[in-house]
Amino acid sequence: MAFTMRAVKVPPNSVSLEEARTRTFEFFKSACRSIPTVMEIYNLYDVVTPSQLRSNIAAQFRKNAHITNTKVIDMLLFKGMEELGDVVEHAKQRHHIIGQYVVGHHGLSQDSGTKDEGASDFLKNFYKTNYF
């Protein structure tokens, strides 16, 4: 499936927060729709499930949930589309996807539960590494 987003030029700025919100949801949907393709081209069946990928994408959206400036939202959308384009066009390699969206920044993603809430920084660091 050829990715057509490349041909589209930069859309005009969102005039209101409502419009930015609609665009964000549209983008989230298109990202979710591309998950089967991503699973296929990067051969991710044995490392991750589509739902895990989807929740990872959702987590990235939620990370910026507090932003209200439409210009910033537009910029983030643009960056996200660029990233999605790269992923779907196979401009990345398998270890990029695994490193960024499967393993995550804090060790294996399955480790980062809510169990550590209330633990001290010492304990959180202790679970990660011996050197802190």
Partner: peptide, 15 residues
């Protein structure tokens, strides 16, 4: 995945 001795005991005490 080894840790220094006193760190293990410190972590265990908190758990």
């Amino acid at each position: 995945d080894a840790r220094e001795d006193w760190k293990i005991i410190r972590a265990l005490s908190e758990v």
